[in-house]
Amino acid sequence: MTTIMDPTDERVPVARQITPRAGAVTGSVALLDISKPRGAVLLDRLEALLKDRAPGVTVNRYAKPTFAKPAPDELRQEIFRDNDFIVEGLAD
C-alpha cells in the first residue's frame, strides 16, 4: 500500500471511475475465459442466454493462455478493437 497526498482542491472523491453504462447490450460482446477450470462452463451458459435473449448481438469467444499472467497485449488489443462489451469469466 502506498499513500500519497491529494494534490487537488478535493472537490471530487477519489475513486476508480466506472465506464459509463450503455443502457442496452448491442453490437459485439467478448466472452473472455481466463483459462481456469470450469470458467468455460459459465461462459457457454452465458453465450446461450445472450443468443436467446439478444439475438442481434454477436458473441466472440477468447481465452487467455494462462490465468496466472495478464492477457497478452495483442489479445487485449484484439478484444478492444472488435467488441463493444466484455464479460470476463473468473473461476474459483
Binding site: 500500500m1 502506498t2 499513500t3 500519497i4 497526498m5 491529494d6 494534490p7 478535493e10 477519489v14 476508480r16 471511475q17
Partner: peptide, 18 residues
C-alpha cells in the same frame, strides 16, 4: 490534505495518470 491510499496491486505512477 486528504491521503489517498493506492492498493499494492496498483502502479502508483499509472494511478496518478488515471
Amino acid at each position: 490534505a486528504r491521503r489517498i491510499e493506492i492498493a499494492s496491486q496498483d502502479d502508483e505512477f499509472e494511478f496518478m495518470f488515471d
